[in-house]
Simulated scan of single mutants.
Amino acid sequence: CGLFADTLALPSVTIDDHFFHRGGHSLLATRLISRIRTVWDTRVTIRDLFQSPTPALLAEHIAAGGGGNPLDTVLPIRAATGRDADTAPLFCVHAVSGVSWGYAGLLPHLGADRPLIALQARRLGGTEGAPGSIEEMADDYLAEIRKVQPHGPYHLLGWSFGGLVAHAVAARLEAAGEEVALLALLDSYPLPGGFRAPEIDGRHVLTALLGSRGESVPVRCADSVPDIAELAEKLRQSDPVLAGLEHAQAAAVVAAALDNLRMRYRYVPGVRFGGDALFFDATGTPAAQPGAAAWAPYVTGRIEEFAVDCEHARMTEAEPLRAVGEVLARRLRPARI
């Protein structure tokens, strides 16, 4: 309880207090995990905290042997269990990094009975089975989603790169006769007409992963072919959330980001989604056109836009997710499956 309270900057917590309901988010979660590893010499990971988010549950989990893989493709941030097992989850698709831990910041805003299932890049686990296109990725995630929830109504969300994938999954579900009750796009834009893909060098990868912070990180491969090993070390040094990754895990994140950038730069949606969509605009990073206009060729329903006061790269930090979560809580109906 003491480690929970110290990390959350609270006077005290009880053995049954939920870390993410008391103000925890992915950055604080990684700090807590680091302190637990130091104090208890255990292999506990952020996945274990998602699975066991109270002091009592986490202590029991550690005693039984923690160490769940935090980079698995399907990551239950809040699993559907007990009385919540028939509540339709919110499925959240990763951004270019392939990692989806940040969506934990939505938990306190969605209601205690809403399962939240994150999808992470299969490339994080190696090249076997990794998709070669966004179309293949959407097919893969569709299959994983239907293992968790065989039939609708479905709720989908994606930030940046993940919005492209979420839209593709939504269109596939609709084509299969399923209901998509919610499609949320977090500062995600399809490529504009006439787009020409840039050369991807080391600096490009760092700024994709770190936002504007990546522009000033010194790196030898800044203007040349990305050096995955070098970039992995820079990522561990510069990103407080991913700092706890082992070198091989950080290298997998860089490799996934590189693959995702290449797929993103050649992707134009080949399908249209007939339902409505919610678009969340990071106002601190101006776009060439409004989200509704950018998505109009690919979404035939109504596109509602919501302004979020942040830069694009900070979209999954605590305050931006509070704004997003408040809108989602109003729109996520109490759907049963």
Rank of each mutant, 00 (worst) to 15 (best):
F91Y: 15
I33A: 08
P320D: 02
A277R: 06
G211V: 03
A143M: 03
G214A: 08
F50T: 15
A63T: 09
D84K: 09
D239S: 08
L71A: 12
A88N: 12
L278F: 11
E144K: 02
G102K: 06
S216K: 12
F161E: 00
A287I: 00
E304D: 14
L261R: 14
E233R: 12
D86C: 13
G162M: 08
P150Q: 00
A5Q: 06
G65T: 12
S26I: 00
A143L: 05
A184F: 04
V219K: 07
L186I: 08
A335H: 11
V148N: 00
F4K: 10
S188K: 11
Y267N: 13
A222M: 04
I303Q: 09
R83M: 10
D201G: 11
E174P: 00
G82F: 08
D259V: 10
T45A: 08
A175N: 03
E326W: 07
A232F: 07
A79E: 15
D187I: 01
G66W: 09
I77G: 06
V241F: 01
A288G: 01
D48A: 09
G325N: 07
A252K: 04
L110A: 05
E317H: 13
A292N: 13
S12M: 07
M315I: 14
L8H: 04
V96S: 02
P153F: 01
R203I: 07
R35F: 11
D187W: 01
F91S: 15
P240C: 03
S238Y: 05
Q120L: 02
E179M: 09
E304F: 06
H25S: 09
R302G: 07
V299S: 01
D48K: 10
V324P: 09
N69D: 15
H61S: 14
Y189H: 03
P131K: 02
R236S: 07
G202V: 05
S216N: 11
A63K: 13
R35V: 09
A255M: 08
V254L: 03
L58Y: 13
